[in-house]
Each structure stands twice: as structure tokens, then as C-alpha cells.
């Protein structure tokens, strides 16, 4: 078991956004984190990567919490944020270098790993460029590249497909699949349900800060009593449920 969240309650102020959520992401699986806007997906991710501290409950990666050993906990995570964050002062090549240095990867190994990734994302002749010259999609590619460079045991990918061109989306999905086969755990939040349905092994459906359902597509279908339906239809049913409850 790679990521284990147990009874997590957390948020920004006194009123918690997340209420006692528990789920696991195992080695060698991709778990899709889905839910409406404001359901708590980003808050969950922020708690996992350590930008927020849980008010209650625990988050463990390979049995370690961020308190017990912050450096080794952080080293296990590769994070691809929803909006790209890059250093204005550093070129693409230096982004690779600084990531390698921060995650303690020998620079030669990092560069050789980067080489294939650069080719995949068609960035190989842009090593000397600054972020200011990149389009949003290119910036996102750099974020993807830096995360996969580290080859962590857990990938946290927040809404990865926005801004990427179809080629890059395809490449990213292939990379994720490859890492899954190598035994990495991947948690991906997304609204692109058709893609999620195809690639995720299991789903965590968040609704108003609580877990509404966990499991593979079959489990969800029976949970919402929608046999044979797609993830999209289940999602819509969830929306209607919310409307009916009000």
C-alpha cells in the first residue's frame, strides 16, 4: 500500500472542507479523484503533499507521515499541479537540474532520464528557454517532465489535461501507464471523465467534503444503481442527487 488516508478532516479555517475521508492508493494502480467544483479534491491533494496540515486523521505514504520524516516523505511524491509553477529566472535545463538536486538524483542520471522525456514532449531544442517564452501548455509539459524525472513512488496529478495538446495528453497517459506497471501509485484528479474511465483502475467520488463512493466502475454502477452506464452518466446522476437534496 502506497498512500493511505485515514479519517482525514481538514480545510482552511474552523469549518473543515473535508470530513473524515479515508481511502488508499495501492502500488501499481491509478486512482481517479472525481467530484464537482468545490467538492474537496484540491484540499485533499494539498493535505497529501503537505501544503495543509490535517486537522484530524492521518496520511501515510509507505507507512511514513510528513511529521515523522518530512524529507523522505516529500521525496516519495511527484506532484503535477493544476497550474504550472516555474522559476522565471531559470531555463528549462536548469529546472531539470534544480529538480534533480532537490530530489537527490545524480545529475547524469537525471539528464539521461530527461532526454527521453524531452523528446516525448517535443521540448528537446528548448533547453535554453525561459518560462516567459513558453506557452501555458509548454509550461505544463515542464511540470510533467520534472515530476516524472524524480520517479517517485506516488504521483499526485491535479487536473493534468488542461492546456496540453492531444499528443502530449497521449504521451502523459502512456507515461502514467508505464509508471503503474513499474509499481508506482498514481492519484489523479480530473473532470475529463471519458479519459478517467478508460485509464483509472478505481475511483474516489468526493461530494461536499465526504466520500460518496469508492471503487471500480462496476462498484460505482451498483452504488448509484445505474447498471451499464458510463462514468459520465454516474457523474450526472450525482449532480441531480445534489439538486434533489436541496
Amino acid at each position: 500500500m502506497s498512500l493511505a488516508i485515514d479519517q482525514l478532516t481538514g480545510g482552511y479555517g474552523h469549518i473543515p472542507v473535508l470530513k473524515e475521508i479515508s481511502f488508499d492508493v495501492n502500488q501499481g494502480e491509478i486512482v481517479g479523484l472525481i467530484g464537482l467544483n468545490g467538492a474537496g479534491k484540491s484540499t485533499t491533494i494539498k493535505n497529501i503533499i503537505g501544503l495543509l496540515t490535517p486537522q484530524k486523521g492521518t496520511i501515510k505514504i509507505d507507512g511514513e507521515t510528513i511529521k515523522s520524516n518530512p524529507e523522505s516523505y516529500r521525496k516519495k511524491i511527484g506532484y503535477i499541479p493544476e497550474t504550472p509553477f516555474l522559476y522565471e529566472e531559470l531555463t528549462l535545463k536548469e529546472h531539470i537540474e534544480i529538480t534533480a538536486m532537490a530530489y537527490d538524483i545524480p545529475i547524469e542520471i537525471a539528464m539521461s532520464r530527461a532526454e527521453t522525456l524531452l523528446k516525448t514532449f517535443r521540448l528537446e531544442n528548448k533547453l535554453a528557454w525561459f518560462p516567459a517564452n513558453f506557452s501555458k501548455g509548454m509550461k505544463q509539459k515542464v511540470m510533467v517532465l520534472c515530476a516524472f524525472l524524480v520517479q517517485p513512488s506516488l504521483y499526485i496529478i491535479d487536473e493534468p489535461f488542461l492546456g496540453l495538446d492531444p499528443l502530449a495528453i497521449h504521451a502523459l497517459l502512456e507515461l502514467m501507464d508505464e509508471m503503474r506497471k513499474q509499481g508506482a501509485a498514481i492519484l489523479m484528479s480530473t473532470h475529463i471523465l471519458a479519459t478517467a474511465e478508460k485509464f483509472c483502475d478505481r475511483f474516489v467520488v468526493l461530494h461536499e467534503g465526504r466520500i460518496r463512493a469508492v471503487g471500480d466502475l462496476e462498484t460505482l454502477r451498483s452504488e448509484f444503481q445505474l447498471p451499464g452506464s458510463s462514468l459520465d452518466e454516474i457523474y450526472l446522476a450525482l449532480t441531480k442527487e445534489e439538486g434533489a437534496a436541496e
Binding site: 522565471e88 537540474e97 534533480a100 538536486m101 532537490a102 545529475i107
Partner: peptide, 19 residues
């Protein structure tokens, strides 16, 4: 030296010279 121990020093130096 581009190793783990110099992460911040490298980052700060680069950005000092570039900015």
C-alpha cells in the same frame, strides 16, 4: 557542484545573477 546539498545555494545564486 550540482548535488543535493547545494540545491538552495544553486537556486539563490542563479536567481541573484539573472534577476
Amino acid at each position: 557542484k550540482k548535488n543535493h546539498a547545494n540545491t538552495y545555494f544553486y537556486l539563490y545564486s542563479r536567481s541573484f545573477l539573472r534577476g
